[in-house]
């Protein structure tokens, strides 16, 4: 029995310590979602360009952001040539919650992701500042989504707050929320009328007047802050939609 175990260990060592990467075996591990065996196999291989490339591929398959970048940098020539890997990684980083890795990915010098002709790189740059591009830079299917994002990007939250200070709810109208504008305006008007009526009939120092005035002040200030937030939220929402549409289109 000992002999058999020894032969097994010997064979195991011979097979996996050789410098040759068995690409078909890696594909087999990947197709069967055998992450555990996949990691063990890649870690058993001596470090080389091709091993780092396969590690980057592995990381892209299992959405391990930082691991993709580390291995990509170590095997840039091979990784650059693999369009699938680059697309998958770019989609991962465009939709990732952690923006530090996204910045690192699109900033790798000389990498595919930083290339001028790369669609994903354009989408990333446009998502940071849509004013850098015109809608012609994008295919017809993306132009609508892009223009919507660009328009919302150019709206100023402070301006929305100023509008709402002058006319309650108008900041929401500026942010494109027509229904909310009417509701906010009516609520503020109602509280104002209540306060004026109770102030006239009961006096300014009466508790009901004070309650009405406080309620009006709270609603009025909330409307200003709400308008400011509405523009910021609109930007985020449109940016997310643009990235989703773009990744779906280019995928």
């Amino acid at each position: 029995m000992k002999k058999q175990v020894n032969s097994f260990i010997l064979f195991f060592c011979v097979v996996f310590s050789s410098a040759q990467v068995n690409v078909k075996f890696i594909d087999h591990l990947s197709a069967n979602n055998l992450a555990r065996e996949h990691t063990t196999y890649l870690n058993s291989l001596p470090e080389s360009d091709s091993v780092f490339y396969f590690k980057a591929k592995f990381a892209a398959k299992y959405d391990q952001g930082a691991f993709i970048i580390n291995n990509y940098v170590l095997s840039q020539a091979l990784c650059n040539a693999d369009t699938n890997l680059n697309n998958k990684a770019s989609i991962h980083f465009l939709t990732a919650a952690d923006q530090r890795n996204t910045q690192a990915w699109f900033g790798i010098p000389g990498a595919f992701s930083a290339g001028k002709e790369n669609n994903f790189n354009t989408v990333y740059k446009a998502s940071l500042n849509p004013n850098l591009f015109s809608e012609e830079n994008f295919p017809l299917e993306l132009q609508k989504s892009y223009l919507k994002y660009k328009r919302s990007y150019n709206k100023k939250p402070v301006l929305a707050a100023v509008f709402s200070t002058i006319l309650p709810g108008s900041g929401k109208l500026y942010a494109g929320k027509t229904k909310t504008f009417f509701l906010t305006f009516l609520l503020n008007a109602a509280y104002a009328v209540q306060t004026v009526e109770s102030g006239k009939k009961l006096g300014i120092k009466h508790p009901l007047t004070i309650i009405n005035a406080t309620a009006f002040t709270v609603f009025y200030l909330s409307n200003i802050y709400g308008s400011y937030r509405a523009v910021i939220d609109l930007r985020k929402e449109r940016k997310k939609q643009f990235i989703t549409d773009a990744t779906n289109f280019y995928n």
């Binding site: 097994f8 097979v15 996996f16 078909k24 087999h28 555990r36 065996e37 063990t40 196999y41 058993s44």
Partner: peptide, 13 residues
Amino acid sequence: LNDSLLSYEYAYF
């Protein structure tokens, strides 16, 4: 365990 799993998988392959 990981090594054994890998070797069995290799044999399977």
